[in-house]
Amino acid sequence: MKKTVTKLADGRALVYYDSRDDVVRDAPDHRPLDPISTTSEIRHDALLGDAVAIASHRQGRTYHPPADECPLCPSRDGRLSEIPDEDYDVAVFENRFPSLAGDAGRCEVICFSSDHDASFADLTEEQAGLVLAAWTDRTAELAELPEVEQVFPFENRGAEIGVTLGHPHGQIYAYPFVTPRSALMLRNAAAHRAETGRNLFDDILARETAPDGHGDVDGDGGGDSGGRVVLAGEHWVAFVPYAAHWPYEVHLYPRRRVADLRGLDEAARTEFPQIYLELLKRFDRIFGEGEPLTPYIAAWHQAPFRAAGREEFALHLELFTIRRTSGKLKFLAGSESGMSVFINDVPPEAAAERLREVASK
């Protein structure tokens, strides 16, 4: 992988990641851009303990532009974009409309391909491996910023999710605090260690991969019905969790526990594109032929950098869709939005079976 660091016209960082070492990236950004002015602010909810980002400048962000005005396509034929070069493999730049900025963190955009009409599932294994390398490099670099406590790479796909740019891309948030979701995982992992002397994430993975498909991680005295493994390799396992929140939700774990992307060994990095690309292709087949591409969120859960209990955390990717059946979405209504109690219409075992049925031939 070759990494080239440069600047956009308004001073934001732009990083190219190329699979070939002989590629030269020196095209300047000729756009007459004003310096970025943001109003990002972190406020704390005293009642719930949550952190909320207030970012009023995002009201003016680019919204569903036509394909020939896409800001994530390369700059070609006199049309200037966020990517000054006329082509690229993977590109990462600071978001022009960030949710987090300055002391309140940092937001980056990662473009998976220069092909506007592609999706992540269309990438080759080499291209997907390059994206993984970019995610890892961004995690390592952002970890060095004193204000950053946690790095969250993720992809939103589909208008139903709220995506406003159709180009294949994701985002990387660098939070100046430990997110509530991660803090809760750490507390539960600490409680499990105190009660059992074992690691919670290891026990979950052992339950899902047990030959008899049974285990009792949650301590309720009953066996947790298995059959939820969707895809398994030598170094990665994908399964529908026992208490899945979403209609179709898959968690992807490396078999060897590591705290974040930096800890993956070469064998896990090599196998990841094979497993992940197949998983994404299955998601697009869930609802049958002729259906629109499945909207999804893909989220990397990484350990906060300085939190107590970091060594207990396990890197994993969570992939889920808000579509519950053909033409119908799962809305977060009263119970989910009001009380954070999810109600899932699709049994996890049925979801796993469906995802096995649609395996590539």
Rank of each mutant, 00 (worst) to 15 (best):
M1S: 13
K2L: 15
K2D: 12
K7G: 07
K7F: 14
R12M: 11
Y16I: 01
Y16A: 07
D21F: 05
D22M: 04
V24D: 13
R25L: 05
D26Q: 09
D29Q: 09
L33R: 15
L33Y: 09
D34I: 00
D45K: 10
L47E: 14
G49C: 03
G49E: 06
A51Y: 10
V52D: 09
I54N: 08
R61T: 00
Y63W: 15
P65W: 00
A67T: 04
A67N: 01
D68F: 01
C70W: 00
L72E: 01
C73L: 01
P74T: 03
G78S: 03
G78E: 05
R79P: 00
E82I: 02
E86I: 02
Y88N: 05
V92S: 05
V92C: 13
F97W: 15
G102M: 03
D103F: 06
D103R: 15
C107A: 07
I110R: 02
I110T: 03
H116Y: 04
F120Y: 14
A121N: 10
A121T: 03
D122N: 10
E126F: 08
G129M: 06
L130G: 10
V131Q: 08
A133Q: 15
W135A: 12
D137F: 07
T139W: 07
A140N: 14
L145D: 13
P146H: 05
E149P: 09
Q150R: 09
P153Q: 08
F154W: 12
E155V: 12
E155N: 02
G158T: 02
A159C: 02
A159L: 07
E160A: 15
T164K: 02
T164N: 01
Q171P: 08
Q171M: 05
V178D: 04
A183Y: 01
A190S: 14
T196N: 07
T196P: 06
N199Q: 11
F201D: 13
A206T: 13
E208F: 06
A210M: 10
D212I: 07
D212W: 12
D218L: 12
D218Q: 08
G219C: 08
G221D: 12
D224T: 13
S225H: 06
G227W: 11
V237N: 08
P241Y: 06
A243M: 07
H245C: 09
W246V: 03
P247W: 01
L252H: 09
P254V: 10
R255T: 12
R257G: 02
D260H: 10
L264K: 09
A267M: 04
R269S: 05
R269T: 10
T270M: 12
T270A: 15
E271F: 11
F272R: 11
Q274M: 07
Y276C: 08
R282G: 06
F283G: 06
F283E: 02
D284P: 06
F287D: 04
P292D: 04
P292H: 06
P292Y: 05
L293M: 13
L293K: 13
Y296W: 00
Q302R: 07
Q302L: 03
A303E: 08
P304V: 05
F305T: 01
A307W: 08
A308R: 15
A314P: 04
A314C: 11
F320D: 03
I322D: 05
I322R: 13
R323A: 05
R324E: 10
T325V: 03
G327Q: 02
L329P: 01
L329H: 04
F331S: 11
A333E: 02
S335I: 06
S337R: 11
M339R: 15
S340G: 01
I343M: 12
N344W: 03
D345T: 14
